[in-house]
Amino acid sequence: MSVDFWINVGVLAGIYGIFTLGLQLNAGFIGLLNFGQAGFMAIGAYAVGLLVVDFGWSLWLALLAGILLAVIGGLFVGISSLRLRSDHFAIATIAFAEIVRYVLQNAEFSGGNQGVLGYDEEWRTLSDWALAKLALIGLGDYTQLPLFIAVWLAFLVLLAVLIVLQGTPWGRVLRGIREDEDATAALGKNVFAYKLQSLAIAAALAAVAGFFVALNVTFLYPSVFDPTFTFFGYAMLVLGGFASYGGVVLGGILFWTLLEGTRLFDTALSAGQQASLRFIIVGFFLLLLSRLRPQGLLGNRAEMRVRP
C-alpha cells in the first residue's frame, strides 16, 4: 500500500518534472514568462487520446503527432504574442491555456466533461510485459512500477539532453537574452527566433508530460489540464531553483512529496478541507519562496539575480 503510494508520488514528480523542464527552459534560461504550459500539455494529451480512439492510430505514432501539434501551438502563441511586453505575454499565455481547456470542455470532438477513454491498450500490453519481467525479481505486484520507470527514463533522458544543450553556444545565447535582450540583439543574435525555439521546445516537453498524464489517469477530462497546474510547475521551479535543470528534479521530488505527503496524516479535516489545504500550502510556498529565496533552493544567486 505505502509503496504503491510512493511509486505514484514518483510518477507525478516525474511527469511534472518533464513539464517543468519546459518552464525552466523558458523562465529560467531565456526569461520568458510562459504561463500556458498546461494548455500545451492538454494539446499533447488529447491529440494522443483522440487519434488513438477516433482514428485508430498507434499510440506511439499518436505521441509523435501530439508533440508536433503542441509545437505548432507553441509556434502559434509565440509568433502572435512574443512581441508583447513580458507581463502581457504572460497574460496572453494564460488566456491561451484557458481557451484550450474551454474548448476541450465544450466542443463535441473532445467528448466534453465525459472525456476520452480507451486509448491506452498498447501501453497496457507493454506494461504487462514489463510487470512479468519485474515479477522475476519479485516486483511484480507494483502495477504502477512500469509507468514509473518509463516516466523517469524519459525525464532523465530529456534532462540530459537539455543540460547538454545548455552548455553549447546555443544555450549561451539563451542566457544572454535572459540577461539583456537588447544587448544580445546588438551583438547580432535574432532574439525572436531563440524565444520561439525555446517556447516550441517547452511545448514539446509539455506534450510528452501530457502523454504520461494520459497513461496515468487512464481517461482524459479537461480539468486534468487546469491552468493551475502551470502554477504547480512554477512552485516546483521556485523550490528547486531557477536556471538549474538539476533543480527541477529536486523541486519535483520535494513538491510532490510535500503535497501528497499531507494525505498520509490523519486529521479531523474533511476530504474537501484537506484538498483545500494542499492548495493553500502551494500558495504559501510561492509567496514565501519568491520573497525569501527568489532564486530557489538550489539556484545560483549570482546567475539568477531577480531583476525588474
Partner: peptide, 26 residues
C-alpha cells in the same frame, strides 16, 4: 522594497490567489 522582478511578483500574486481562494474554500 526588496526590488522584486516581474517573475517574483507574478509568482507571489499566484501564491496569494491560491491562499485566498482555497482559504475561503477551506
Amino acid at each position: 522594497q526588496a526590488g522584486a522582478g516581474t517573475l517574483q511578483l507574478f509568482l507571489s500574486a499566484i501564491g496569494l490567489a491560491l491562499v485566498l481562494r482555497f482559504g475561503i474554500q477551506f
